[in-house]
């Protein structure tokens, strides 16, 4: 350790070394580990500070699984065998996030391939710009614009009615179409750029070699491009999935009235419910299940964690 530090400082200079090690340590400790540990700690506590602040730190303030129990079984007088609402919302959130991820992958792969292997010079730069600039519009403005676009009286309905495709308007917001479209769009860049990076480093000759050996385009993608881009696909999908499952603003604004996103339930516990321990427990469950799910999928597709950083 000491010799490593010496080597590190002789390679980068003392000033830079102290700065690098200091900021990275601070970042990891203060921004990542500490808050999550606090949340983890919270999730195993009773909600004393709301119910009876005097008992905080007292003999009854012990660790408990009550918050996790609540997520699974609900309140003691719940007639159902488990907490139907919360558990259903939880799984619906995960499944919806999976679909949004698949949807984004399907849209972004051709774009990333085109940018990385086909487009050249000015056209490629223009396309990248055209992808980035719309994200200057802030999230809240975009979300409300989606409401206008997808609302029952909205632009999309007006167009479809005018074209005679629909006879009566569809409430895209109630049907959650607006939410999925909004979520899909929100993280599109996080899918495109990892894919682009991965595909861009693929030697064009590999594609031509496969072509030359008689391969169809489908097979070229299946056998050459996609296997090569797997690390990029993994990191793009991971990011989109995690962020979608953890999104809050978009479900609040353009989610249908009858469908909750799991983050909204968490938010309710923290905010209107004033129950931070329960909110923490819910949030921790979401985090752990999402991570476990990502690792499971990576195992199925035989991607190692180290490849994501490539």
């Amino acid at each position: 350790m000491i010799s490593w530090l010496k080597q590190f400082s002789s390679r980068n200079g003392v000033g830079l070394s102290v700065y690098l090690l200091g900021t990275v340590t601070l970042w990891i400790l203060v921004m990542i580990i500490l808050p999550q540990l606090l949340m983890l700690d919270f999730s195993f506590r009773h909600n004393w500070h709301h119910m009876d602040p005097a008992k905080m730190g007292g003999p009854e303030d012990v660790y408990t699984l009550v918050n996790y129990h609540f997520l699974l079984y609900g309140s003691p007088n719940n007639p159902d065998p488990f907490n139907v609402v919360d558990v259903t919302v939880f799984f619906r959130t995960i499944i919806a996030a999976v679909f949004v991820t698949i949807f984004d992958l399907a849209i972004c792969y051709p774009i990333a391939y085109y940018l990385a292997q086909v487009a050249k010079g000015a056209r490629a730069r223009f396309m990248v710009l055209a992808l980035i600039v719309p994200f200057w519009v802030n999230e809240i403005l975009r979300a409300f614009a989606f409401r206008i676009l997808f609302g029952e009286e909205g632009t999309l309905n007006a167009i479809l009615l005018a074209l005679g495709i629909l006879n009566e308007p569809i409430d895209f917001i109630r049907e959650d179409v607006a939410l999925y479209a909004g979520l899909g769009y929100a993280y599109i860049l996080l899918m495109i750029f990892p894919l682009y990076n991965a595909i861009e480093s693929l030697d064009k000759n590999q594609i031509e070699a496969a072509r030359d050996l008689g391969s169809s385009w489908v097979r070229i993608h299946h056998r050459v491009v996609i296997p090569f881009a797997k690390p990029g696909i993994t990191s793009g999908c991971t990011m989109v999935f995690m962020l979608t499952a953890g999104a809050l603003a978009l479900p609040q604004i353009i989610g249908g009235p009858s469908s909750l996103w799991f983050t909204q339930i968490i938010y309710q516990w923290f905010n209107t419910g004033s129950n931070w321990p329960r909110g923490s427990a819910y949030a921790i469950v979401l985090l752990v299940v999402c991570i476990a799910f990502v690792f499971l999928v990576m195992r199925i597709f035989k991607v190692r964690i180290g490849e994501i950083g490539r």
Binding site: D203, N205, Q206, E208, A209, A210, D212, L213, V224, F228
Partner: peptide, 13 residues
């Protein structure tokens, strides 16, 4: 025809 590329372009995976 079959082409042998300058960098060979074998499929690494």
């Amino acid at each position: 025809t079959a082409l042998i590329f300058q960098n060979l372009a074998l499929f690494p995976l």
